[in-house]
């Protein structure tokens, strides 16, 4: 396999995580898939910029995040939030078995969707992708303490919302 082909295969393997990341950022699976598609196109076009041996996922996630930041500046009101229902539509019949839209999970997603965009960024990177605070800070171009405080506020907001909904005591 050529190096580009190896990278291409790695990008394919990254798509599910990239979708999850974009879903948290955008709040809707439709917008998320638009972001993922645009990010993959940019990645393919700029493969020469990728440094073999460095983290491909970090490179692509950064592309995706930058794309979304630009995109949300351009189009202030996107589709708005959706949930698993639209994803089921996209996924088709096969999706119905793997996607279990439990009430609790739906509530947690709605709580995440209600966070301000800058808090969703750190939730996506630190909670879901499990980046270190330093890695997240580097990717977002923020000081580490700011990443920490955003996540702190995000956790507090999530806890309040979940408590109000009876998901956590």
């Amino acid at each position: 396999m050529t190096p580009d082909e190896t990278t291409r295969q790695a990008l394919i393997a990254l798509i599910p995580r990239l979708r999850r990341f974009a879903r948290v950022l955008t709040g809707s699976i439709a917008d998320a898939d638009d972001v993922v598609q645009a990010s993959l196109e940019k990645a393919m076009v700029n493969l020469e910029q990728y440094q073999p041996g460095t983290r491909l996922d970090a490179w692509v996630f950064r592309i995706a995040h930058n794309h979304w930041v630009d995109d949300r500046r351009r189009a202030h009101n996107r589709m708005g939030h959706d949930d698993i229902g639209e994803m089921l539509d996209l996924a088709g019949e096969d999706g119905r078995e793997v996607v279990e839209a439990s009430a609790e999970a739906r509530m947690v997603r709605a709580a995440v969707d209600s966070l301000p965009p800058e808090q969703r960024d750190v939730v996506a990177l630190v909670m879901l992708e499990e980046l270190s605070y330093r890695e997240a800070a580097d990717m977002l171009g923020l000081p580490i303490g700011t990443v920490m405080s955003r996540l702190s506020r995000a956790k507090a907001a999530l806890a309040r919302r979940m408590t109000a909904q009876g998901v956590v005591q």
């Binding site: 979708r19 996607v99 939730v123 879901l128």
Partner: peptide
Amino acid sequence: VRDAFAPVLDA
């Protein structure tokens, strides 16, 4: 939160 978004990974 991880559990809630796991379906996206599996879809």
